[in-house]
Amino acid sequence: MRIGIPRALLYYQYYPMWQTFFEELGAEVVVSPPTTQAMLAEGSARVVADTCLPVKAFLGHVLSLVEQCDRIFIPAIRSVKKNTCNCSKALGLPDMTKAVIPESPPILDIDIDINRGKRVLYQAIYKLGRHFTWNPFRVRRAATAAWQAYLNYRELMSSQGLTPRQTIEKLSDAPETKGEMSSSYPAPTRATIALIGHPYIIYDEYISHRLVRRLETAGIKILTPKMLTIEELESAITRLAGRAYWAYEEEIVGAGGHYLQSGADGVIGIMTFGCGPDSLMMDMVARRAARPQATPFMSLTLEEHTAEAGLVTRLEAFTDMIHRKKRRQGSR
């Protein structure tokens, strides 16, 4: 059986885990190609205009997988930690996909809700495994291997400062694709900028207008939320927001709080227009950045119509400002 995994949304968080799970159970995994304009346009055509950009892109990815696989894997993740919750759109994703893409292959969905306890979680995993095997021990083995793969993946990212794409390539021993999003640029590091935002925006080259690459060619070292350890994130979250509420957005607040205080010369917050949780969380970070002595902060809001030139101008202005600030501090 071939399982399709759209290269969007949670792909960047969990792909190694999902891949290991399905391959352990004897399935073949197909990933959709990187986002293109055509994919985004096709995805947008299916939904109401209010829907956010990442979901539109996600549907484009699903559409590109329609002919390629027998099942599509779309999990509905409600919570990944006690007393947190996830965005409605992420929760309704399997049902929404079914409604707007009726021609899609059957959808494998799994409800992940840590709030309801371990038992329910194990049952959900077993239910997903049942599509492949009757043997609960095999499912269990696959799940353990998958979890190990996930831990490795996170470890690699935070210890070596790699992007998800580099890490995934490293894990699968694939020959590295040259140039793309690798930090092999010889330009000397002139400044360090932290990019905070969802991995599916930062690392999606089309959606983010190659932001990472642009900055790297300008000789800037990039830091992302994924490169922090969980402890660093958590202490920053408690400082800024108190109790964690969201499943993934806390990461943004935590990283924002951390980098605004130390470790970076500038912080860029990227969000998409109409993102529910981000509109709150980015606001929280921006308020923190407005305090005296905080690291310079710029907030970018992306949508389908973002013109590249405008984005480039703002980026240049921001980096110029940082360079000037560094020079001034250096000469003092």
């Binding site: 409605s88 929404m96 529910g276």
Partner: peptide
């Protein structure tokens, strides 16, 4: 409401 997450899901379905 504009940008209401749950209702966007409902609208799409």
């Amino acid at each position: 409401p504009f940008t209401c997450m749950p209702e966007i899901v409902a609208q799409n379905i």
